[in-house]
């Protein structure tokens, strides 16, 4: 598995401190990140892809400093947003998948065959020429994942990818992510989706307050949220 390292990372927007001195070394296959709204967990996820830059400290992916080698890092790290709608950038399903391979110097036949395979793998073959806005929420998130995987990333960072899905699609999509051979970093509110994960971090007020197996970390998160454990 690749190694994502945060060394004493802090980040603030003006007066507001979002992350306060986080140091973690992430080498497990499936890593969950939970936390309340505004805890800084989404910001943490964005750091790994260089979508935001730390005010202090460094983030490295396989030894590459994200701030200095952003391009190489982004080639390794695929990013899934919670709103698939903002991630799908092209008018039709096929075009959006083709977009992933844009500017990589691939021959048109190679692009077509890889896109065709992805369409079949993700159950989107019947919708290849449909406008993306006609897809269901679950299909949109499938398309977003297919588009990310076409880039051959080694790490998938997913920022609350199941928030807009119904219960059945939440489980189905989390299952899909958990079965990937890539390293998966999933930020989620839905703690029950993280049970099969290897490690779960709990973020609160910009700090890592628990870092353990899902059972232990999720229990700590529930206590933090003041939830009555039945």
């Amino acid at each position: 598995m690749p190694r994502v390292t945060l060394s004493d990372v802090s980040l603030s927007y003006g007066e507001r401190e979002v992350l306060r001195g986080i140091s973690v070394d992430l080498t497990e296959h499936r890593i969950g990140i939970v936390g309340a709204n505004g805890s800084g967990k989404s910001t943490l996820a964005r750091l790994v892809n260089g979508l935001v830059r730390p005010s202090a400290g460094t983030v490295t992916v396989d030894g590459l400093d994200v701030a200095r080698h952003t391009r190489q890092v982004r080639a390794k790290v695929g990013f899934l947003f919670s709103d698939a709608d903002s991630q799908i950038v092209m008018p039709t399903v096929r075009e959006d998948l083709e977009f992933s391979l844009r500017g990589r110097g691939l021959a048109a036949v190679d692009v077509a065959s890889r896109v065709d395979r992805a369409l079949v793998d993700f159950g989107l073959a019947d919708h290849a020429d449909h406008p993306c806005y006609l897809l269901s929420g679950g299909q949109k998130q499938q398309l977003a994942l297919a588009a990310v995987l076409l880039l051959d990333p080694q790490i998938i960072v997913a920022d609350e990818p199941t928030t807009l899905l119904d219960l059945r699609n939440q489980r189905r999509f989390a299952q899909l992510l958990a079965e990937l051979s890539q390293q998966v970093l999933m930020v989620s509110h839905h703690v029950e989706l993280l049970t099969g994960f290897d490690r779960v971090l709990v973020i609160d007020d910009g700090r890592v307050v628990a870092d353990d197996t899902p059972q232990v970390a999720v229990a700590a998160y529930r206590r933090l949220m003041g939830e009555v454990v039945r």
Binding site: G50, A67, R68, H69, T70, R71
Partner: peptide
């Protein structure tokens, strides 16, 4: 080189 790469990315 590194700082050129950074400003390139930005």
């Amino acid at each position: 080189d590194a700082s050129a790469a950074v400003s390139d990315t930005l």
